[in-house]
């Protein structure tokens, strides 16, 4: 019972924080609230037994992302301007999508149901066999590194690619490409197909 109450309280706080993020115009406050939102999400993951996920969310969401966002605000300015167009159409789209999704939840198994299909497929095998096959108490680590190693290799490659892309985008000195942008008239390309369209 107490767990249910904590669950409901944390979820309500998350909703309130998200609405505050949507409504505030000061981007500094928005970034700070998004750190708080991540911390609430991490607490929520502890309640839902996902300790590894909570650990990651607390370190990443409340830590690194907040630092990165503040670094960007220092470069771009921290006031958001009021948009000129009316938000009526986005509101209609969002309400319709949300209603459709809520309608869909009535077909979902109840929260915490041990016999839900998602809990019956491969999870029992991992929980029952992994200790004999891999020998680690932490099933999440066994599945992450061994059973689903391909998946994790892909994810690590995505992180590598993102780091390389950030290097390409903002790694050079500022204004390196200014010369290219200012002289578009110079149409001598060293291509071998002549270059005349």
């Amino acid at each position: 019972m107490i767990i249910t109450l904590i669950d409901i309280a944390l979820l309500t706080f998350m909703g309130a924080t998200a609405i505050a993020i949507l409504r505030l115009r000061s981007l500094f406050a928005v970034v700070m609230l998004s750190g708080i939102y991540s911390l609430l999400a991490a607490s929520m993951f502890v309640v839902l037994d996902a300790v590894d996920v909570a650990f990651t969310e607390a370190a990443v969401g409340a830590g690194i992302s907040t630092v990165l966002m503040i670094a960007v605000l220092a470069l771009t300015g921290e006031r958001e301007r009021t948009p000129s167009h009316t938000p009526l159409l986005p509101m209609v789209v969002v309400v319709l999508t949300g209603a459709a999704l809520i309608y869909a939840t009535f077909d979902m198994p109840a929260f915490g149901d041990a016999n839900a299909p998602v809990n019956l497929h491969v999870a029992p095998r991992y929980l029952n066999e992994s200790f004999a096959e891999v020998g680690l108490p932490n099933v999440v680590t066994s599945v992450l590194a061994s059973y689903r190693g391909y998946d994790t290799l892909g994810e690590v490659t995505v992180i590598f690619t993102a780091a390389v892309a950030v290097m390409l985008l903002i790694g050079g000195r500022k204004g390196d490409d200014a010369g290219i942008k200012k002289e578009p008239a110079d149409d001598t390309e060293p291509d071998d197909d002549g270059g005349t369209a």
């Binding site: 839902l48 037994d49 996902a50 590894d52 996920v53 998602v118 809990n119 491969v122 999870a123 991992y126 929980l127 099933v139 999440v140 599945v143 992450l144 689903r148 998946d151």
Partner: peptide, 8 residues
């Protein structure tokens, strides 16, 4: 135990 797959 809770399902480990979503966690991964």
């Amino acid at each position: 135990y809770s399902n480990p797959i979503p966690h991964v």
